[in-house]
Amino acid sequence: MKIIITVFSIFITILIYLMSKIVSKKFPSPFTTPVFFSTPIIITILVLLDIQYEEYTFAKEIMTYLLGPATVALAVPLYKNREIVFKNILPVGLGLTIGSFSSILSGVLLAKVFGLSNILIASISVKSSTTPVAIEISKIIGGDPALTVAFVIITGIAGTMIGPWLMNLTKITNPLSRGLALGTIAHGQGTAEAAQEGELQGAVSGVAMGLGAIFTAFVAPIVISLIL
């Protein structure tokens, strides 16, 4: 029975993922991105078929086996766009450091003020990091992987919707800065949005996503250990 459920779980997850790819191509929007679109559908199917989450976890282990190598692969776009960083080391370095740090610190402090549990605070602290890195940092600092994915995805969607509007309002017009802000805070989704604005924005955003994730990996554990 366990094998049947596992095979079925993998089949259904891949199927819905492929569906989400088609839907997001036809109706491109933050809400049709694969995770946001697929997860509720898969959960609904599992609930309807009375499959418990514990029964799904073995399938999860198999499907996420390549997540580590996939994270390592992020070095490739970073390497390809490294010239942009070297040429603009100060604006990129300072913008990313201050922006990323303020995002981590404000998230943790506010969560603390609202009296949220430590699991929630740890999970929320890494919300601007790209998902695979966020999950791993979150595990180290006592967060929950599923909550972390949710916060990261919500941050990506919200950042993509708010970001361009906010930067128009505050007269942040420099293409480098716009790409940097979107990639630093809204990671992969922000990068997709930045690429729509222009080639430079997209490239900077991709770099910012990678560097922001590395920065968060170093800083979030320190912030958490100081505040919790």
């Binding site: 990129v92 201050i98 922006g99 404000s106 998230g107 506010l110 609202f114 708010i162 906010l166 910012a208």
Partner: peptide
Amino acid sequence: IIMGISIVLGIYLTGFVSQFVA
């Protein structure tokens, strides 16, 4: 509330600081 404030602050500061320095 937490996510909203934190996201706005993060995007604004990243963009503002990098543009200022640039």
